[in-house]
Nucleic acid binder design. Sequence first.
DNA 1: TCTGGGGTCCTAGGACCC
DNA 2: TCTGGGGTCCTAGGACCC
Length: 271
Amino acid sequence: MALLADFGGAVEQVSVDEAYMDMSHRFADAAGNGAAMSAALEMGREMKLLIRRERHLTASIGIGSNKLLAKIASDHGKPDGLFAIEDAGRAAFLRTLPVSAIHGVGKVTARILGEAGLHTIADVQDHAGDLRALVGSFAGTLKRYAFGEDERPLEFDGEIKSISTEETFERDTEDRRILVPLLRQQAEEVAGKLSRERLAARTIQIKVRYGDFTTLTRQTSVEEPVESAAEIYGLACSILRRERLVHRPLRLLGLGLSGLGPPGMQLRLDL
DNA sequence: TCTGGGGTCCTAGGACCC
DNA sequence: TCTGGGGTCCTAGGACCC
């Protein structure tokens, strides 16, 4: 990320090792789409060289006129790739790809589309029927994505919506001498992140998974946002007791916080 | 692949209010 | 009251992403 910053574009960091960069200002004066593309490819080569020289790592770079196309281009070149999708030919280029190449189409959606006879992006482009019956509110977006249209802006340091931690045991256990210390530790962990982010939480969630992979979540919301590990631990314990979740050995125990907001907003009535 | 961990977003039902 | 309609909040589960 530090190396990318030197290229002078806006950077949206997606994960530890992935980012979108808006470099459109760099190529605004390039005459025509073809010139802009070759300039962008040249910059991509520079980025890869720099990353290899400074970090001894390969990287895949995808170039396109929006996030969807850049991502597909990047996937297309993996590993160690550099690939650009020309804007003029985007809809035609996408036709050959499977529906699963589209961001947001995972295993389940791909299966649903496949059962309706839609296997490639071309199938989605050409489909005359209503996609809402298949994919609900994703229909409009899916149709636009299939033609390479994507208006999503880059997003920068968005606010945190939830904080959680979980742990899978090597052996399923209902031993309180294992579960209690772990839950305390997890409460410390999420409380630590909460305080580093200067937040408090109104909702505490417990997650358990049993040996048969059955996974349950139970949450509780409180009026006064909590901040401390002790408060979080106490609420987590009351959920576990209330719901009798530890009636058989656990494969996993997790603790999460949501309903995040500014801390220390308790009304002081002790005038 | 007998299945890790940290997130976001969506859906659906129910409680509750006006 | 054998009940309309719209809205908000809470809860649980699941799809998806990296």
